[in-house]
Design a protein around this nucleic acid. Structure first.
Lengths: 140, 140
DNA sequence: AATAAATGTTACACTCACTACAACAGTTAG
DNA sequence: CTAACTGTTGTAGTGAGTGTAACATTTATT
């Protein structure tokens, strides 16, 4: 799954958890609320649980519950927890690295893209889940 | 081709043109210097020509030649000229938009991603081809 | 202890975009 | 008129992303 898709999925799920708090929700329940496949949700939610953002409880009567308040959770934390590949997909010309100029320019761009990646991450750090919920409920 | 791949390809090609200036280079010649396929180069170079960044001359003895000095060309111009899809690939959870909450959160993220896209573009605007050439030749 | 209801994880089919390249039509100098 | 170019279209192969199912594992309940 792409980082941006996972991020929006994570926000939707966590938003449900915020509304249900302090009651836990199962992946099936969240699936019913969002339309997102339950297996897919579990994949993402288990990553969020490992990052300590939510708590997962196995077994009958279990489910997921927030482990932090919405204003303590920011998009960067969510993004970090679920990231497998970078948001700014950094492809540079494939395999012509035997040519010195290519190698140098590739390196330059990899550095630049990392730089941009850092910019994106700092921006996301400034946006809390509470911000998102508030904005979604008022401005849209 | 992804935007970032095309961008690095464009920079490599334009870098060759800068060194050859005022002599024109054919796509075959640039291919020889960079290892990049000539057809692929022509695809990108023709886009740069349409944007007025380089000039293309058809027919025997033709080729490509810079139409601006390296310090007048910035990465944003190159990126703009070759862009087909956005750098920050903005996927949000696909097709569950019948659920109002989803639609709102999707819209929120599309807005956020556009915002980030703009940030990336302004950053690229500050980097000229001359900067890249200078940096590549000294720092790497 | 047995059962039912959860999570956690793996696997898989399917689609689709990307990549790299070839081929050829169109254009121009000599 | 020919040779050397660009411009554009098409295409086979590959790899990543998507959506989902299946099953192993864990735990509350009775």
């Amino acid at each position: 799954m792409s980082a941006s898709l996972k991020l929006s999925t994570a926000v939707k799920a966590v938003h449900c958890l915020a509304r249900a708090y302090p009651e836990p929700l199962s992946s099936t329940e969240i699936s019913g609320m969002t339309g997102i496949n339950a297996s897919q949700l579990r994949l993402i939610l288990s990553m969020l649980a490992k990052a300590g953002i939510i708590q997962s409880m196995q077994g009958a009567g279990g489910g997921f519950i927030l482990n932090m308040t919405p204003d303590q959770i920011n998009l960067q934390q969510l993004y970090c927890a679920i990231e497998t590949r970078k948001a700014f997909h950094l492809a540079v010309s494939g395999n012509h690295e035997q040519i010195p100029l290519n190698k140098k320019i590739n390196t330059y761009f990899l550095d630049l893209f990392e730089d941009i990646q850092r910019d994106i991450e700092s921006k996301m750090e400034t946006i809390s889940l509470a911000d998102v919920i508030q904005k979604v409920e008022t401005h849209y």
